[in-house]
């Protein structure tokens, strides 16, 4: 892959910066949804390009399930420290404690679905009118249909049959009070584009993206990190494996892949040759053919 000349990265970068500045110009109270994953880390770099030497015209918002990889939280806090921007954390635990949501039970329990409630509550509490996210259209087929400026009603719902026309580079962010817009500046990037950009820009990443040794169990054919958050029983055999993570979500729903890729070049080679898609490692997408569409209709990221 390294033989390709990377001119297209400038094109993708310019488009993303343009979109971020449209958010700044069009909304009263925007926010950048930060998960600690590579896509939102890329968004932070793009925001630096869009607004430095000024401050970001929005805070970063992290919806913390409480089941994050500790490496992600460590990275997040160090990054906030470095860039000197405001961070708002919405805790899923708070919604569990308040009885707004009920923790799932059983072996495949995950807080993934509970996040939506905390996200919507955080949006309402701070009255955010736009939320910038790192979703990409190449990830999943419902996302492949979504506009760059995607309007949500006051219940946070996406209506895929009534999307606004979106022409040229003209983004209509006009909304009524209570509605909000989800904005996806890297819609047109592929997984490989993100990695090539991270390499070009020399952006540091959480260590879990790189190969390391970890205790894992195999569940539904996937390698999962053996953690206190995962409900395990005597059938689960813990093995020490050489793994890395291709996407970073909750520890309970993000599968690891066997890997020895310790450098970014190794990762880029690995992805170029991979025959499995990125979200193939996400248990949350495997529920049904329309799993993502249904979650988005309910207000998910």
């Amino acid at each position: 892959m390294s033989k390709y000349n990377l001119d297209y990265l400038n094109e993708l970068e310019a488009e993303a910066i343009y979109i971020l500045r449209e958010v700044a110009g069009q909304f009263e109270k925007p926010a950048l949804l930060f998960s600690g994953g590579k896509d939102s880390i890329t968004l932070v770099r793009l925001a630096e390009k869009a607004f430095r030497p000024g401050k970001f015209p929005f805070p970063l918002v992290h919806i913390d399930t409480g089941h994050n990889f500790p490496e992600t939280i460590e990275y997040r806090d160090a990054m906030i420290n470095r860039i000197g921007e405001k961070l708002i954390v919405g805790h899923v635990q708070d919604d569990i404690d308040a009885g707004n949501v009920i923790e799932q039970k059983g072996k495949n329990a995950s807080r993934n679905a509970l996040q939506t409630v905390t996200l919507l509550n955080t949006i309402a509490k701070h009255q955010f009118d736009a939320c910038i996210g790192g979703a990409r259209r190449d990830e999943e087929k419902a996302r492949a249909k979504e506009r760059i400026f995607s309007v949500r009603d006051e219940f946070g719902q996406w209506d895929p049959k009534r999307q606004r026309p979106e022409l040229w580079s003209i983004f209509n962010g006009k909304i009524h009070k209570g509605e909000n817009v989800r904005v996806f500046p890297i819609s047109n990037w592929t997984e490989l584009d993100v990695w090539n950009y991270i390499r070009r820009e020399n952006i540091p990443l959480p260590s879990i993206y790189f190969a390391h040794q970890r205790d894992c169990i195999t569940r539904n054919g996937q390698l999962m990190a053996a953690t206190e958050f995962l409900n395990m029983d005597e059938e689960d055999v813990i093995e020490r494996r050489n793994v890395r993570f291709r996407t970073v979500g909750d520890m309970t729903c993000t599968a690891a892949i066997e890997s020895y890729a310790t450098e970014i070049d190794d990762i880029i080679n690995e992805i170029s040759e991979s025959k499995i898609s990125e979200r193939g490692a996400r248990m949350d997408d495997k529920v049904s053919e329309a799993a993502m569409e249904d979650r988005k209709k309910g207000g998910y990221f």
């Binding site: 087929k141 249909k145 895929p160 049959k161 569409e293």
Partner: peptide, 20 residues
């Protein structure tokens, strides 16, 4: 390419899907 439930049901394309 048919990403939405309604599209799969009806066997038609309703909205643009982007593929890379």
């Amino acid at each position: 390419t048919d990403g939405l439930k309604a599209e799969r049901e009806q066997g038609i394309t309703i909205d643009v899907a982007y593929k890379y």
